[in-house]
Lab assay of single mutants.
Amino acid sequence: SDIKVHVGDITVELHNVSEEFARLVEEALRLGLNEEQAKEWAHKALH
């Protein structure tokens, strides 16, 4: 599904992702990663 993740003043739109993936992206953003890094990190975490 499509999910918007908000962290501080950052909003990341995720398309066709699981809630778990979105949660991992949100966690990575909170750790200070940028959007691209957060998506990559979440992807690796799920595989």
Rank of each mutant, 00 (worst) to 15 (best):
S1C: 07
D2R: 09
D2Q: 11
I3P: 04
I3V: 11
I3G: 05
K4H: 10
K4M: 11
K4R: 12
V5S: 05
V5H: 07
V5C: 04
V5F: 03
V5P: 05
V5E: 06
H6V: 15
H6W: 02
H6R: 11
V7Q: 06
V7R: 02
V7P: 05
V7T: 06
G8T: 05
G8N: 09
G8K: 04
D9Q: 12
D9F: 06
D9P: 09
I10A: 08
I10L: 13
V12F: 02
V12T: 06
E13G: 08
H15W: 04
N16E: 08
N16V: 05
N16D: 10
N16T: 05
N16C: 09
N16P: 06
N16I: 04
V17T: 09
V17Y: 06
S18L: 06
S18T: 14
S18W: 04
S18R: 09
S18E: 05
E19H: 14
E19I: 15
E20S: 11
E20G: 09
E20N: 10
E20T: 13
E20K: 12
F21E: 02
F21Q: 01
F21Y: 15
A22Q: 05
A22H: 05
A22T: 04
A22E: 03
A22M: 07
A22N: 04
R23N: 08
R23G: 05
R23K: 13
L24T: 02
L24N: 02
L24V: 02
V25L: 06
V25E: 00
V25H: 01
V25W: 03
E26V: 12
E26R: 13
E27L: 15
E27F: 15
E27T: 14
E27Y: 15
A28C: 03
A28E: 00
A28R: 01
A28Q: 02
L29W: 01
L29N: 01
L29F: 03
L29A: 01
L29Q: 02
R30S: 09
L31K: 10
L31Y: 12
L31Q: 11
G32P: 00
G32V: 00
G32M: 01
G32F: 01
L33K: 06
L33H: 07
N34A: 07
N34C: 02
N34Q: 05
E35S: 11
E35M: 12
E35K: 10
E35I: 15
E36I: 10
E36G: 09
E36F: 11
E36R: 11
E36D: 14
Q37R: 08
Q37F: 03
Q37H: 07
Q37C: 07
Q37K: 09
A38S: 07
A38G: 01
A38W: 01
A38T: 00
A38C: 01
K39H: 04
K39M: 14
K39D: 02
K39L: 14
K39R: 14
E40S: 10
E40N: 10
E40R: 11
W41M: 04
W41E: 03
W41Y: 14
W41T: 02
W41D: 01
A42K: 00
A42Y: 01
A42L: 02
H43C: 12
H43N: 09
H43I: 11
H43T: 11
K44E: 09
K44F: 11
A45R: 14
A45K: 15
L46Q: 07
L46E: 05
H47S: 14
H47Q: 12
